[in-house]
Simulated assay, not measured.
Amino acid sequence: MKAIWNNAVLAESDDTVVVENNHYFPADSLNREYFEDSIAGTTCPWKGRASYYSVRVDGELNKDAAWYYPEPKEAAQQIKGRVAFWKGVQVTS
């Protein structure tokens, strides 16, 4: 699987975990040059507190386009250390 935005490959792995129709990529599969920490956060009742990354490619910013759960709840342990995407990031095989 590949996560692509603005013609850049943000992440690539054949080891994704699908939860709620989102592919969670291993953190070590990210091309870190495109990622910036975000102050955004949300809470999911069964997964826990999510943190976000913004993505910057060729000077264009996609704010809060990736999220992860630093300490997922017990029911979501399979996504610990993984990152998912939205906001126009294409996830394709």
Score class of each variant (00 low, 15 high):
residue 79 I to N: 05
residue 71 E to D: 13
residue 75 A to S: 13
residue 76 A to E: 06
residue 19 V to R: 14
residue 31 N to A: 15
residue 41 G to M: 13
residue 39 I to D: 14
residue 67 W to L: 03
residue 37 D to K: 09
residue 55 V to M: 04
residue 23 H to K: 10
residue 62 N to K: 13
residue 36 E to T: 13
residue 47 K to V: 14
residue 38 S to T: 04
residue 79 I to D: 05
residue 81 G to N: 02
residue 85 F to C: 03
residue 45 P to F: 11
residue 67 W to R: 08
residue 43 T to F: 03
residue 19 V to F: 09
residue 41 G to K: 15
residue 61 L to E: 15
residue 21 N to E: 11
residue 53 Y to T: 06
residue 61 L to M: 12
residue 21 N to P: 04
residue 84 A to F: 02
residue 86 W to C: 03
residue 26 P to K: 12
residue 46 W to I: 05
residue 34 Y to S: 10
residue 66 A to L: 02
residue 60 E to F: 10
residue 50 A to V: 08
residue 32 R to C: 01
residue 79 I to C: 11
residue 18 V to I: 15
residue 66 A to N: 00
residue 89 V to N: 02
residue 17 V to H: 11
residue 62 N to G: 04
residue 36 E to K: 14
residue 35 F to A: 02
residue 16 T to M: 03
residue 23 H to D: 15
residue 72 P to N: 13
residue 81 G to K: 09
residue 87 K to E: 05
residue 23 H to M: 15
residue 55 V to S: 10
residue 52 Y to N: 00
residue 67 W to F: 07
residue 50 A to G: 04
residue 42 T to Q: 03
residue 65 A to E: 07
residue 50 A to L: 06
residue 90 Q to P: 12
residue 72 P to A: 06
residue 25 F to A: 03
residue 43 T to L: 11
residue 81 G to W: 05
residue 76 A to H: 01
residue 18 V to C: 08
residue 19 V to E: 14
residue 41 G to H: 15
residue 31 N to F: 06
residue 15 D to K: 09
residue 29 S to K: 10
residue 65 A to V: 00
residue 42 T to K: 02
residue 56 R to F: 09
residue 81 G to S: 03
residue 57 V to A: 07
residue 22 N to D: 11
residue 81 G to Q: 11
residue 47 K to D: 09
residue 51 S to C: 14
residue 68 Y to A: 09
residue 28 D to A: 00
residue 87 K to W: 08
residue 40 A to Q: 13
residue 26 P to R: 00
residue 31 N to R: 11
residue 48 G to L: 14
residue 27 A to E: 14
residue 90 Q to A: 13
residue 33 E to A: 15
residue 65 A to M: 13
residue 20 E to G: 07
residue 54 S to H: 05
residue 65 A to G: 04
residue 66 A to R: 01
residue 26 P to G: 05
residue 40 A to H: 10
residue 88 G to H: 03
residue 57 V to P: 01
residue 30 L to D: 00
residue 59 G to F: 08
